[in-house]
Each structure stands twice: as C-alpha cells, then as structure tokens.
Amino acid sequence: MSGISKTPEPPYYAVIFSSQRTEGDKAYGRMADKMVELASQQNGFLGVESARDEKLGITVSYWDSLEAIKNWKENSAHKVAQTKGKTDWYKNFSLRVCKVERQDFFEM
C-alpha cells in the first residue's frame, strides 16, 4: 500500500479504521497484506491508503456503496481477521464510515 488512491468522482464511501497495536507482530503484517489483497478483489472496492507509526495506524478504504462495505464486513476471511484483531493485535480501534461528497487532488 503506497501512494494516494485514485478514486472516481464522488459520491462514494470511505471506511476509516484507526488503531493502536499490542506489542509484537503476532502474524499481523502477513494478515494485513492478505486483507488488502482480498479487499481489492471485492466488488465495489475503489482503493486503500494506510499509514502507521509506533503509536497509531490509520487505514482508509474506499468503496462505491454501503452494500459493498457490508459485503466486505461479512467476508469470512475478513471475519477471522476481525476476531484476531480483537484478541491479539489491537489495544483499541475505531471504525468510521463516511460518505465522500467532494474531493481535490494535487500532484506535481
């Protein structure tokens, strides 16, 4: 995951996942990569951006509809990752779903 996602003209939806990790990897990195790969294959997926430092991680995924977000949430492999997140990987997290109504991009 690198760079800024090239999303279509709004409206579309953003899922903002902010988290603080527990100590140690515990196979987190491998699962995170797998989830991005799997999400990118889902109908309605538009892109993803992610950043993490030692204290906070933020991942924003973009979707064309609320139905696409719901289908991703219910994906069986994603459900396994959600459970592992609660038991092994996160001290805390928040998830916000937003409708994108306007966007601007700058590029040199």
Score class of each variant (00 low, 15 high):
14 A>N: 12
16 I>V: 15
16 I>K: 04
17 F>M: 07
18 S>P: 00
21 R>W: 02
22 T>P: 00
22 T>E: 12
22 T>C: 11
23 E>H: 09
25 D>Q: 07
25 D>V: 15
25 D>T: 11
26 K>S: 14
27 A>R: 10
27 A>C: 08
27 A>I: 06
28 Y>K: 05
28 Y>S: 08
29 G>L: 12
29 G>I: 09
29 G>Q: 10
29 G>M: 07
30 R>K: 12
31 M>F: 04
32 A>E: 08
32 A>G: 03
35 M>Q: 05
35 M>K: 07
36 V>F: 00
36 V>C: 05
37 E>M: 11
37 E>Q: 14
40 S>N: 06
40 S>M: 04
40 S>P: 03
41 Q>N: 15
42 Q>M: 06
43 N>W: 04
43 N>V: 09
44 G>E: 07
47 G>W: 06
48 V>I: 15
49 E>M: 10
49 E>G: 10
50 S>Y: 05
52 R>Q: 14
53 D>H: 09
53 D>T: 02
54 E>Q: 15
55 K>Y: 12
55 K>M: 08
56 L>N: 08
57 G>Y: 05
58 I>S: 02
58 I>M: 08
58 I>Q: 01
59 T>W: 04
60 V>F: 10
60 V>S: 08
60 V>N: 05
60 V>E: 03
62 Y>G: 06
63 W>N: 00
63 W>E: 00
63 W>R: 03
65 S>H: 04
66 L>A: 07
67 E>A: 15
67 E>F: 12
67 E>C: 08
68 A>T: 07
68 A>R: 01
69 I>E: 05
69 I>S: 03
70 K>A: 15
70 K>C: 13
71 N>Y: 07
76 S>A: 11
76 S>N: 11
76 S>W: 03
77 A>G: 03
78 H>D: 06
78 H>R: 04
80 V>R: 01
83 T>F: 01
85 G>Q: 05
85 G>V: 04
85 G>S: 08
86 K>F: 00
86 K>Q: 10
87 T>D: 07
88 D>G: 01
89 W>K: 02
91 K>T: 15
91 K>L: 15
91 K>S: 15
91 K>G: 03
91 K>D: 12
92 N>T: 15
92 N>V: 13
92 N>Y: 06
95 L>Q: 09
96 R>A: 13
96 R>D: 12
97 V>F: 07
97 V>Q: 13
98 C>F: 01
98 C>V: 15
99 K>R: 15
100 V>Q: 01
100 V>T: 10
100 V>C: 08
